[in-house]
Design a protein around this nucleic acid. Structure first.
Lengths: 201, 201
DNA sequence: CTCATATGAATGAATG
DNA sequence: CATTCATTCATATGAG
């Protein structure tokens, strides 16, 4: 789900290819295309190490390290973490997933159900090490907690959120739509689900 | 042309649609296939109501409502609007070669030639320090110190980074990071996989 | 079967 | 940190 499309499937990094891919897969991509190894490491840092907002120094080191797997700049690492974090959060907000599963963990997928990517046991080993070494005042790994964000976050939905006043629809240009005859149903539609509790069906 | 292929033609909703089709037209499509009703409502929201970028809550409500017409998730609604807007704009960019009738549009003035060098210095402010790139591919990290407490020096000076002048960043104020002796745990963390066999190059 | 088009999904990059 | 834009991949469908 994550980046199954890319990963290394763009004929770049591949598993053994190991070409100085990075940025270009065939021409001047102008846009960074992470290799499989790069992604793997980044994900490892994110999930297994809880790194979510690397500092400048961290980014430097990470990008420097990842450079051996392909062309990469600091900003790429920076953006990667930004995006990954943001999208994980967004997923939470958009998903109507209200299942009372055990751990939401570091979920990585809209489905909310991730095929046990990171066995929690794995961490303990590393965490321990990192933990003791990290005598620094809560730095480096911003979020050390095994469970990034408590589920307390998305519980707030469902009740209020009744600020239905305006749903961002301010400028409605009744132009293009040819089948304007559906207007009625639209209003009905809008009101129906805009006033309905988010409880699915 | 628009969505003549789908709409309800995928043997799902049929003409009258309103069938609990959604995701699967036969099995697990893995990909959401909107039903005719769902598309109709979405288009209605888009065109008749000018809804272009629904918020998270709106998406939840919309998807919840559309769910009665078939399986659907929040991300589907999200992507739908995202794609619809992007493609409409893209189409406009391609067709509007002599735009000039009305206005230039919403900030996307396409005059055939878009210089916009984008000095890439925009982000410099944020992570200027990160910007520094090393021309030494392959290694450089292997020898990184375990006690990079001094890492602050290089950053603080900024001269080191300025030497690269990669982005023409003169004054790099390491804003966000702030952390000084941050590095320690980081590379410790990284060390685990930094020892990986560089099978790449 | 191959190709073209439409479109769902994903993600890098960027802005506020 | 969230929101948006642009680009690209992946897949469904129909034409040839």
């Amino acid at each position: 789900m994550e980046q199954s499309t890319h990963d290394d499937a763009h004929g770049c990094g591949a598993a053994t290819a190991s070409r100085t891919c990075g940025y270009l897969s065939r021409q001047s991509s102008a846009r960074w295309i992470p290799t499989g190894d790069q992604i793997r490491i980044l994900r490892d840092l994110y999930y297994n190490y809880g790194l979510r907002s690397p500092s400048a120094e961290q980014i430097q080191r990470i990008s420097a390290k990842l450079r051996q797997y392909g062309k990469i700049e600091g900003k790429n690492v920076f953006y990667w973490f930004q995006n990954h974090k943001a999208r994980e959060r967004q997923k939470r907000r958009l998903t109507t997933d209200i299942r009372g599963s055990c751990f939401v963990g570091d979920g990585a997928g809209w489905s909310g159900i991730e095929p046990a990517a990171i066995p929690a046991v794995e961490w303990s080993n590393r965490w321990a090490i990192v933990g003791q070494e990290m005598s620094a005042p809560g730095r480096a790994l911003e979020t050390l907690p095994l469970f990034p964000t408590s589920a307390q976050d998305e519980v707030e939905e469902g009740s209020a959120t009744a600020g239905i006043s305006n749903y961002g629809v301010e400028k409605a240009f009744y132009c293009c739509s040819g089948g304007a005859g559906t207007g009625a149903s639209l209003e009905l539609t809008l009101s129906s689900f805009f006033y309905e509790p988010p409880s699915s069906v």
